[in-house]
Design a protein around this nucleic acid. Structure first.
Length: 613
RNA sequence: GCCAGUGUAGCUCAGCGGUAGAGCAGCGGUUUCGUAAACCGCAGGUCACCGGUUCAAGCCCGGUCACUGGCUCCA
């Protein structure tokens, strides 16, 4: 599971060609120019600063500095913005000059810009080398820029962050200043407003307000507690997965949360992933001869090895394949503290996992069926914007990052590529990003607030079944090792629900809504009628409650709306006499009076169909 | 793990050297009401934790923890 990869690439060292640069949009020019203006301002305030690079991004721009005499903090923003304002007012020309490599190097050496000198060395031989100057601020830069500093009209500094030089952890850490710029003030304000709106949809905020989940210091960071209402979401997702997988010929299994070190040595996970696993539990075991032996147990960070052991639990025949084992397995990963993020990145997680063991002949259709399952889920949740990322290996890393099986890599990657092409799915291929045991497809989605992450994953494993000695008898009565497909179309409960909270802004469709129906009596006279109705609906499996508070009907409605109750039944004497209810939908207002039978039939149907609204 | 920021009642926040505050939620009353807030009252806090400066510390300083924004990493 990975996330923010594409964002990271956007910031990475991959050089844009000059052609790419010339295609830069007006907005990109403005933002990149604004980055220069910001850098010029920083140089005026702290003249001893070293410059790195300052590209535009999808959200705005940034510039990386080494400022020896100062630690940047948001308190510096007014001062820097003030200086930027001055530079813009001076309306300086962005003066481009094409120079020779030696000429530029000597300028940079004079000004002591050591990062820039290294960046200069990256520019391929034969490519045009240019500098842009505004006033006395010179920057090695291919452009393009706006004409004058006065063309930048709306900008705002956003945050400071540390960033490693060239993104490498071992390199020195630079201070990164983030900002954004727009063509005019109106657009900037609209964007700021949208950011505010995004904050309101944040799953951490809604999760707290709706009492879906909680964190507790004594439990530990990254270890979410599902509160009753969040537990309902979990249960509904599991019901969906179980039904879908049952129909698709999967068999459910259950496995322990930990295993001995030897298994992870066998799987090959340990050398690669020990750092992101919780440290082992160590215990003394007394052997039959009285000697003691230290045994190490690891909390499982993945379900695959346990499932492989199920495959290996008795001899298998080709007749049993494809064998599809599924489990909502609990895993534990020791994610770095700085990486923890609400429900989206946690240390305990439950994965919608399954492993499909199949013959090479079955591989393509099994892989295709998995893709179709993804599409089915996306339709239910109305997920329209997604991207399949096909991660492949880099032959140079064989034996290091990737298991040393050159032919298997090529063969399986070709197979996956063919399935993707044949099914006409939109995908991008990204080299050198595969799992160590095989190529994978990650489904990237964007939450309502524009954050990108891997929601689900579908991986091919041609290495580990062999390590586990998994074999089946072929028709020819020989032994063969199965291929394995790892798949988790609903990702993990934690991340998937985090995504859904933002996707729906907490306004879940009826089948998912923790509070499906709340009955609101106008007065005490209707209480018995309401209570009878509640009992009847409960018997039907509908999540319903009665508001027995002393509030007026307006107050009851308000509370139900705030609680995001999907459907309200307002019941007064009129409704009781006619065996009806006045239906009100969350966010949609009064839907009119309807006979009880009609409303209940409709609700049952919506739940059964998992209707999207 | 690294850089920066934040931490005051269940929630949202005010107070920024001089006796801890508000609204909402909660609890107790009164009210029984027709589509987004009835009224009155009560209670609620070692101001994240540990140490320091000061006659006096939510407030200043140092450390720890948690969370947040980035970076790095990510089966």
């Amino acid at each position: 599971m990975q996330e923010r990869k594409i964002m990271a690439e956007e910031h990475s060292v991959a050089r844009k060609t000059l052609e790419d640069r010339n295609r830069a949009s007006d907005l990109e020019r403005i933002r990149h120019s604004c980055a220069h203006i910001m850098a010029a301002a920083v140089m005026r305030i702290w003249p001893g600063s070293q410059l790195d690079i300052g590209p535009s991004t999808s959200e705005g721009f940034y510039y990386d500095f080494d400022i020896p005499e100062h630690r940047l903090s948001p308190e510096d923003f007014p001062r820097i913005e003030e200086e930027m304002k001055r530079i813009i007012k001076e309306n300086l020309v962005f003066q481009k000059e094409v120079k020779s490599r030696e000429e530029v190097r000597s300028i940079l050496e004079t000004s002591g810009q050591k990062f820039k000198i290294e960046r200069l060395a990256d520019i391929p031989e034969g490519e045009e080398i240019s500098t842009y100057t505004i006033g006395d601020f010179l920057d090695l830069c291919a452009g393009p820029h706006v004409m004058r500093t006065g063309n930048v009209k709306a900008y705002k500094l956003l945050r400071v962050a540390a960033a490693y030089y060239r993104g490498k952890e071992t390199n020195p850490q630079l201070q990164r200043l983030y900002g954004t710029a727009f063509a005019n003030k109106t657009e900037l304000e609209e964007w700021l407003k949208m950011q505010e709106e995004a904050k309101r949809r944040d799953h951490r905020k809604i999760g707290k307000e709706m009492r879906l989940f909680a964190f507790d210091e004594d439990v530990g960071p990254g270890l979410p507690l599902w509160l009753p209402k969040g537990g309902i979401l979990v249960t509904e997702l599991e019901k969906l997965a179980m039904e879908t997988e049952f129909q698709a010929g999967y068999e459910r299994v259950r496995t322990p949360h930990l295993a001995k070190e030897s298994m992870y040595k066998k799987s090959g996970h340990l050398p690669y992933y020990a750092e992101s696993m919780f440290p082992p539990l160590e215990m003394k075991e007394t052997l039959n001869d009285g000697t003691e032996k230290m045994e190490r147990y690891y909390l499982k960070a993945m379900n695959c090895p346990h499932h492989h052991k199920i495959f290996a639990s008795y001899p298998r025949s080709y007749r049993e394949l494809p064998l599809r084992l599924s489990e909502y397995g609990c895993c534990y990963r020791y994610e770095q503290s700085g990486e923890l993020f609400g429900l989206m990145r946690v240390r305990s997680l439950q994965m919608n996992d399954a492993h499909i063991y199949c013959t090479p002949e079955q591989f393509a259709s099994e892989f295709q069926a998995v893709n179709e399952m993804y599409m089915k889920y996306f339709k239910i949740f109305g997920i329209k914007k997604y991207l399949m990322r096909f991660s492949t290996h880099d032959p140079k890393e064989l034996g290091h990052k990737f298991v040393d099986e050159p032919e298997l890599w090529k063969e399986t990657e070709d197979r996956v590529r063919n399935v993707l092409k044949d099914s006409g799915i939109d995908y991008v291929e990204i080299p050198n990003e595969a799992a160590f045991y095989g190529p994978k497809i990650d489904v990237q989605v964007w939450s309502a607030i524009g954050r990108e992450f891997t929601l689900a994953t579908n991986q091919v494993d041609f290495a580990v079944p062999g390590r586990f000695g998994l074999v089946y008898r072929t028709r020819e009565n020989t032994e063969a090792t199965p291929l394995c497909i790892h798949r988790a179309p609903l990702g993990t409960h934690e991340r998937f629900i985090g995504f859904l909270i933002e996707h729906y802004a907490g306004n879940f469709p009826l089948w998912l809504a923790p509070d499906q129906v709340r009955i609101l009596p106008i007065g005490n006279e209707q209480m018995e009628y309401c209570e009878a109705l509640r009992k009847r609906m409960r018997a039907d499996g509908i999540r319903v409650s009665v508001d027995t508070s002393g509030d007026k009907i307006g107050g009851k409605i308000r509370n139900a709306e705030v609680d995001k109750v999907h459907t309200m039944f307002v019941v007064g004497q009129k409704e009781q006499d006619a065996n009806s209810v006045a239906v009100r939908r969350h966010g949609k207002g009064d839907q009119g009076v309807k006979p009880v039978e009609e409303v209940l039939a409709q609700i049952r149907q919506m739940i059964a169909e998992r209707a999207s609204d």
